[in-house]
């Protein structure tokens, strides 16, 4: 009994320690960020390419199909009320406010987050990070900050592309397949969606971008430096990012309603 209590206490303390270290790590990344952005922009550009440009295909294909399925569902339900014109509105609201940022963040975790974690984890396992320290190169500045910034910059763009391609998918299903009038399809969207709805999506994607990149970089940097450790860290990146993104999504939505 006493033993379980002690274990519980130790676990709690260990959790608090990790959580605190995570916050301090975030501050450290932020502290180096302006300097890296101004002096080593090339490194950041390369990471924007890795996290953003190379995720384009998966984001666009997923966006197209998510938009298409939203329009399909919306149409089949709206047509019960003879409100087919609202197909586009349903798809637009879902995409711009929710599915755009959330789906992009989840895909980002799977595509770019895992790549970041395993890359940094392997660097650590093969002692590359220690080697840098020996050469008086700060690995946080040189390796982690550009990767973090690359993810943060790429994410809002990816979410916007997801939503835009998704709307095109909705247009394909609604207008081309179900013959909803193209004028009323887009006019209803324009009349109903407010600029604040778009802003909500953008704010969400920025928050998710910071969260997803931070978690990926953190997990990579704190990998147990073995083959198994890298595998575990990669899995944890996806799991923790997914949970964080969905919880944050709820909180932001609740705060903005």
């Amino acid at each position: 009994m006493k033993q379980t209590f002690l274990d519980l206490r130790n676990n709690l303390i260990e959790f608090l320690r990790t959580f605190g270290a995570f916050q301090l790590f975030f501050l450290r990344l932020l502290r180096y960020s302006p300097e890296i952005l101004t002096t080593r922009l090339g490194l950041v550009v390369k990471q924007v390419h890795n996290a953003g440009a190379q995720s384009l295909v998966i984001i666009m294909v997923c966006g197209l199909f998510v938009g298409a399925v939203l329009a399909l569902q919306a149409y089949s339900n709206m047509s019960k009320f003879n409100a087919e014109d609202w197909t586009g509105v349903a798809a637009a609201f879902a995409l711009v406010k929710e599915l755009g940022p959330v789906m992009t963040a989840l895909l980002f975790a799977g595509r770019a987050g895992t790549a970041l974690t395993s890359e940094i984890g392997l660097m650590k396992a093969t002692d590359q990070l220690s080697a840098m320290e020996m050469m008086a190169v700060n690995p946080v500045r040189r390796v982690l900050v550009p990767r973090f910034l690359g993810g943060v910059i790429a994410m809002p763009f990816l979410a916007a592309i997801f939503s835009a391609v998704g709307l095109y998918g909705a247009h394909l299903i609604g207008v081309e397949v179900f013959q909803v009038d193209v004028g009323s399809f887009w006019q209803q969207i324009q009349l109903t969606v407010e600029i604040s709805d778009v802003n909500e999506g953008i704010i969400k994607s920025i928050v998710f971008g910071v969260a997803a990149s931070l978690i990926a970089v953190w997990e990579g940097y704190n990998t147990v430096p073995t083959a198994e450790g890298v595998g575990h860290a990669t899995t944890r990146t996806v799991v923790i990012t997914a949970i964080t993104v969905l919880v944050f999504d709820f909180m932001i939505t609740a705060a903005m309603i």
């Binding site: 924007v48 953003g52 711009v96 763009f157 592309i161 939503s163 324009q190 709805d197």
Partner: peptide, 17 residues
């Protein structure tokens, strides 16, 4: 990529609202 992202943002802010 950035150009595509910006044009998507532009599209979302001007064409859907």
């Amino acid at each position: 990529f950035v150009l595509l992202g910006m044009s998507s943002l532009f599209f979302l802010t001007t064409q859907t609202t």
